[in-house]
Design a protein around this nucleic acid. Sequence first.
DNA 1: AGCAAAGCGATGTGATCACATTGTTCTAAT
DNA 2: ATTAGAACAATGTGATCACATCGCTTTGCT
Lengths: 203, 203
Amino acid sequence: MSRGIRGVGAQHEQRRTEIADAVLAIVAERGLAAVSQSAVAAQAGVSAGRVQHYFPAKQQLIEAAFERGNHLSSARIRQQVGRDLEAADARLVLTTVLAELIPYDAATRAHMRVRQAFHALALADEVIAARLRLLYDDFHRQMADLIGEGRRSGRITAALDPHQSALALVALAEGLASYVLIDLTCAGTARELLLAAVADLYR
Amino acid sequence: MSRGIRGVGAQHEQRRTEIADAVLAIVAERGLAAVSQSAVAAQAGVSAGRVQHYFPAKQQLIEAAFERGNHLSSARIRQQVGRDLEAADARLVLTTVLAELIPYDAATRAHMRVRQAFHALALADEVIAARLRLLYDDFHRQMADLIGEGRRSGRITAALDPHQSALALVALAEGLASYVLIDLTCAGTARELLLAAVADLYR
DNA sequence: AGCAAAGCGATGTGATCACATTGTTCTAAT
DNA sequence: ATTAGAACAATGTGATCACATCGCTTTGCT
């Protein structure tokens, strides 16, 4: 099943990842509408035939890019959390993760642009929508767990439902993120508002 | 300048509105990617030539649909507010307006799907982005005014900045709305969370 | 009545698209 | 050495697209 490090198929996954990354770059810069075989090939610096070889249908290309984007995002968040601490304080983890949803540099801005694009696609593509629901369920549950931890330790009032609070916090973060993306609000303001909401939880 | 009720050009604006409405229907059902001259013509029940006659370039068609969508949304909100009361209590108005951002039936769901689609388009279309910024500035200012009113009457603590609070409230509403759109959350839950946030303002 | 412009359907056009097909090179197992 | 399949590049194909053009009819002003 798994391919060796040498020989035919050795670089199969790496090639697919390169192409998926090219898709993400296009989506971040020009949107999903600008994604075509030739555009992706040009962005990746490979032939159009190669793109077609690894992704016989466009839908597969889009889905692979979607998965790749999610993987990159969660890796980035995991790295941020891990950087701050290992045996973590729940509130700090919560703050760090939520703050990562607000674009603060070119890379995170690109990530969130991609995220927004696929979120819009989900409204017309049930495959993407179903996948997105799974990812959100997981993410919201993790956030709810962090809130539940704070509640057990008495730093968050028991009157609050962790899952509801998690839903509201992430929704706020994403709403603010969308404002930052269209330059309606600067990243600092959005971050402040988000942190204020977290502080309100621990009031 | 203005065209009379009879003669050449009498139905000009009405025809444009009909076509724009067809665009909105397509966007709501199948997304912006499904918008083409022929698709719009079929949806509107007119010839493709007619669509082209009234909108020589596709960009104009998209922008007209965008404006039309905004007009319909604001008209709906104005109607809801006006229905509830005339010389209005600020909190009730605030609640009503924010609640209108959460999809609760097929029509509002379609409205918000369109809204999301154009929001995503704004990330790749600076014309739409600029227009969106203007609309948000206005909307946020109105919400801030309502909060400012509550603050002056002492029902909202002076410690809060009206504009910041407005930003956070609307962002929360839109974030929750996006969850409802992908069936991650039911409309009732989203509405509850939103109302809880408003209640927290008046705490 | 005559004329210019609007309204609008029909058809043409070049570009682009997703995808199919073909052919060549390379690799690895036999 | 042979061979099957992977890894491509190149070219073909039919569809669709935005938009241009043409031509006819209607309308309203003079």
